[in-house]
């Protein structure tokens, strides 16, 4: 390959998610120009906030080589507990929000207990808690829909200086996640742990405590994301959040988080979630058969993961070249 095409390819692989994003926007924009209007773009971000907030939490877990399959159930259970508390004690919405967050802490703590201290692999722990949490929630509601008060809905539909509240919360969570990951000791230690858990332990990092906090953060984010979406709907169905764990993981991976740990960022998670939502809404906008939509999503996720693999491969080959600085024969 010529150096210039080589570099172009490199650039493409490195920024695959953004390129896919641009293509998606362009395509849907051409298909129906209304798609690129500010209102519909704002709508995308608003709807992306749901998966996005959870994907921010998932990024923490993926960075430590872990996985959390229970987020869909936490999205369901934590707001439900908050709803009961609000109904029983007449709590205002903001206190309900606090209750949901606390519920997230407890549920994440259960995952953390098994992963960090009992050393069971995250896949199994969170697969089990996926069913435990949902089962518990279904039992609480006796398999019926749970209706929230009007306050809840008006909170969900409110806005702060013209920006819808869900977007504001999304932005705040993203900002906090970014600061933690990029600018605190804890955040940098998460990257270190994901890169080499054994070396992290030898470096004197309290790895159990680190892992535990990561799972709690993930559940808290899932709790917030569930709360924010339910506030917009005003009620909670039995099947709420079911299967969402895969959307959330996909969003985080689309945003550049690696399942092998040590790679990923808060910004990436935001981009990944927005991309998924763009595709979803775009497909609705252009009137594609409802049943075909998941297939398109699947293809896009596949492309992003594929690009990620290429990126890693090129990185490796580049490293080899620097070890052996020979002229091009």
């Amino acid at each position: 390959m010529k150096p210039s095409t080589d570099r172009a390819f490199d650039f493409a692989v490195r920024n695959a998610t953004y390129l896919i994003f641009a293509c998606v926007l362009l395509y849907f924009g051409l298909q129906s120009p209304g798609f690129l209007m500010p209102e519909s773009l704002a709508n995308i971000v608003k709807q992306a906030s749901f998966i996005g907030i959870a994907a921010l939490g998932m990024t923490f877990v993926l960075l430590t080589r872990g996985i959390d399959l229970s987020v869909g159930s936490v999205m369901f259970l934590a707001p439900l507990i908050a709803g009961f508390a609000m109904r029983e004690y007449g709590l205002p919405v903001w206190l309900g929000f606090v209750v949901a967050v606390l519920a997230g802490v407890v549920l994440g703590g259960i995952n953390a207990l098994f992963v960090a201290w009992l050393r069971v692999i995250p896949f199994i722990v969170t697969l089990a808690s996926l069913f435990l949490f949902r089962g518990f929630g279904t039992w609480l509601t006796s398999s019926t829909q749970f209706d929230f008060s009007e306050d809840m809905r008006s909170f969900g539909l409110s806005s702060v200086v013209g920006i819808p509240t869900p977007i504001v919360i999304f932005a705040i969570v993203a900002l906090i996640a970014h600061i933690i990951l990029a600018h605190t000791t804890f955040g940098r230690q998460i990257y270190a742990f994901g890169n080499d858990p054994e070396a992290a332990r030898k470096s004197g990092i309290n790895t159990q405590w680190l892992q535990a906090r990561v799972y709690v953060i993930c559940s808290v984010c899932a709790a917030i994301s569930g709360f924010v979406l339910i506030a917009q709907i005003g009620r909670l169905d039995v099947a709420f959040g079911e299967g969402r764990e895969f959307d959330v993981i996909a969003a985080a991976v689309l945003g550049g988080a690696s399942l092998m740990g040590g790679v990923g960022s808060a910004f990436g998670a935001v981009v990944g979630a927005t991309l998924i939502q763009t595709v979803k809404l775009g497909l609705v906008f252009t009137g594609v058969n409802l049943y075909l939509q998941p297939i398109m999503q699947g293809i896009i996720i596949f492309l992003a993961v594929f690009a990620d693999g290429l990126r890693e491969k090129r990185l490796l080959s580049r490293l080899k070249r620097t070890i052996r600085p020979l002229e091009n024969a």
Partner: peptide
């Protein structure tokens, strides 16, 4: 061949082929 993680690959085909 493409060295993609099995979890993501089969997740994608789970979504895609169920939908199909």
């Amino acid at each position: 061949m493409l060295n993609m993680p099995a979890f993501m690959v089969t997740l994608v085909s789970m979504i895609t082929f169920s939908a199909l």
